[in-house]
């Protein structure tokens, strides 16, 4: 059984500061981490490997060369190897284009099960998992909260939706997307870190190996484009009152009466 876990490197905080002059995001000093939903997916894969040591776990990302650091952390946690997909033509990919690139890399690497996070905490679209499944023409199961059983040709999971939970069985190969609350990811292990120093366990793929049509990825291949970005604007100025407690209570009640929220 070969499991590929898709990981995205994201900023450690979603608190954003924007350069007032250029409008560009200021990312300096914000450390990068593995997206929390993806870390849960990796932990789930490693638990399957604990049960069945024949399982091979690969962590894969598309990103800048520095994203290799995140993959090394994945290997230090227990993954067998990392695959970094990096190429200038991939820069600026939206989810439609990202899924084309990831699907090409997944086909090259091979898989029985693909685990993606449900949602990345920066882009927040939750689209890459399902779109990658579509590109591979395999089923998807989103919002997975627990993996119950994996057999030769099927996987049974629990999905957590708004009002219900579902027990679902999907044919393999398939893509599942995981939720960060499903487990507690393990720490990196010393002997794995030592192994990493002895042997380079990160494979780098560029478009030369994948042969993706450059027209279908990157800025060019992305049907969506970001027209503008802005931080939360404070629109109507609030009236802030500092009154005695009794006056405060009376004024709220009076306002509610005027707005006909308090009737008889």
């Amino acid at each position: 059984m070969k499991i590929v876990v898709l990981e995205k490197q994201v900023p450690d905080s979603t608190e954003i500061t924007v350069d007032k002059k250029t409008g560009a995001l200021i990312r300096d000093g914000v450390p990068a981490i593995t997206n929390p939903d993806d870390l849960a997916g990796l932990e789930a894969a490693l638990e399957l490997k604990d049960k069945n040591p024949d399982t091979e776990v690969v962590v894969m990302t598309m990103g800048l060369p520095k994203a290799a650091e995140m993959l090394k952390e994945g290997v230090a946690m227990g993954a067998d190897k990392g695959v970094l997909l990096t190429d200038r033509v991939l820069g600026g990919s939206d989810t439609c284009a990202t899924s084309i690139a990831l699907a090409a890399a997944l086909k090259k690497v091979g898989f029985d099960l693909v685990i993606a996070g449900r949602q990345a905490i920066d882009g927040d679209t939750a689209q890459v998992g399902p779109q990658t499944a579509e590109r591979l023409d395999i089923p998807q199961v989103t919002y997975v909260d627990e993996i119950l059983e994996v057999k030769e040709d099927s996987i049974t999971v629990k999905r957590s939706l708004e009002d219900v939970e579902q027990i679902v069985t999907a044919k393999l190969p398939c893509v599942i997307t995981t939720l960060s609350g499903m487990n507690k990811p393990r720490y990196m292990q010393c002997d794995n870190i030592v192994d990493l120093c002895k042997e380079d366990k990160i494979e780098v793929l560029t478009n030369a190996e994948l042969g993706i049509d450059p027209e279908t990825v990157g800025f060019k291949g992305s049907p969506t484009s970001v027209k503008t970005t802005f931080t939360k604007d404070v629109t109507d100025k609030t009236e802030v009152f500092t009154l005695s407690e009794q006056e405060t209570a009376d004024m709220i009640a009076k306002t509610l009466k005027e707005k006909q929220i308090i009737t008889k």
Partner: peptide, 27 residues
Amino acid sequence: FNISNMGFVGDCATVLPLLVESIKAAK
């Protein structure tokens, strides 16, 4: 306060009991 229509600086523990009475009175 930045996203409120009306903001009141005050302590909930003392304002809220008075508010219950004010609402009753307004009714």
